[in-house]
Design a protein around this nucleic acid. Sequence first.
DNA 1: GCAAAAGTGTTCTCTGTACACCCATGT
DNA 2: ACATGGGTGTACAGAGAACACTTTTGC
Lengths: 220, 220
Amino acid sequence: MTNGESARAGDACPSVAVFVVILTVESGELRVLLISRSAEPFRGLWSLPGGVLARDQSLDEAATNKLQRETGVSDVYLEQLYTFHDLDGRGSVAVAYFALVDSRQAQLAHRRTWRPAWFPVADLPPLAFDNNRVIDYALLRLRAKLDYSNVAYSVLPHYFTLSQLQRVYEAILSRPLDKRNFRKRMLSLGIMEPTGKTTADGAHRPAQLYAFRERRPVIF
Amino acid sequence: MTNGESARAGDACPSVAVFVVILTVESGELRVLLISRSAEPFRGLWSLPGGVLARDQSLDEAATNKLQRETGVSDVYLEQLYTFHDLDGRGSVAVAYFALVDSRQAQLAHRRTWRPAWFPVADLPPLAFDNNRVIDYALLRLRAKLDYSNVAYSVLPHYFTLSQLQRVYEAILSRPLDKRNFRKRMLSLGIMEPTGKTTADGAHRPAQLYAFRERRPVIF
DNA sequence: GCAAAAGTGTTCTCTGTACACCCATGT
DNA sequence: ACATGGGTGTACAGAGAACACTTTTGC
């Protein structure tokens, strides 16, 4: 390693890959998008969507594109996670991102050579490379961020009820939350506002619909 | 970008650089190690120590080596920070680390073509690349971690007084802390223990010497 | 009228913060 | 005796956690 120099195109440079841990909440479960590998190595196992970084791409672009191509969504919470080394035993550098998406808006890509699918994070199939580490790391970060950011905006429709929001939190944290305390806290953050509209979707009292003030990543 | 593939050695891969934000506390100030650039680009400006990642190196190895070569120290708090893209306008990928060191233990390297020096983070010279961003990011992380980790162990000698510890915290946070509250909190964390030894270094009451239970990165 | 989900307050505990004085030593 | 830094306790405020009943609707 030479000193004080920025990177140059070298003859012996390691390649750079970008992976995205795409998470959603569905049926009260936190799920992750995985892709069945049709090629060696690890043929037949599942892996995170990702691939080699093109020369003219930025890291964020690569992650955004990957997310868009696999799920069709954009404008969601997407954040760089960590850069791993040698996930594959061949000395590559792998930059991992994580994203939260609304599974109802996602249209999973279906290509000839591989198929993507949602898996509950609590019950993963055998994974290629060292993808378990990457997913564990993403869960840690997501759970830590949940409490002091508005990550949840990208897993919910524009209008949502406080009960829906609570179910999302409960799925991500995988523990039940107290309804009154949850509402008190969420409303006191000032990150959402009542829309005046209500639901009318069942044999029960209609619920107030709320909307996030900001639909972009914000930390409190 | 191809799908589900790990990284491969490509012909058009972007190069990978590793930078280290090496911080210390000296004279009550938080300082960062910078290197005077003797080569283009940005000749004459200062930059963070770093360089291109060799093919057979892991990221952590590269950061550890860089730290060791510039300061002579090892076994300090060293953590991956963030991976930047295109800091230099030439499309490289730059993985940044940050470290905290005890400046009394550090022996700065002095080579022919460049010289390293400590600069107060509050008063930096013009920097090469986009190093201000990297340093700002490191400060954010360090200040956030200070409260719920034992980062400080690596900026202090094995035996230290609570007043020394407090001065380190005050330098990093750049605000004064209340002595009684600080002691109460530090001791209640259970991360350090009294050694029974005391200082005898001035015209005042001797101070109890403490030692960290763990001298390795721990989060609480 | 009953099932189902929405909505709503109070009490307690714990944590963080503000704040001022005596103690042990060297000179 | 005085200057210097070391060491100690209490009171208040705010945040998080525990906890149960009434309301509105569809059927």
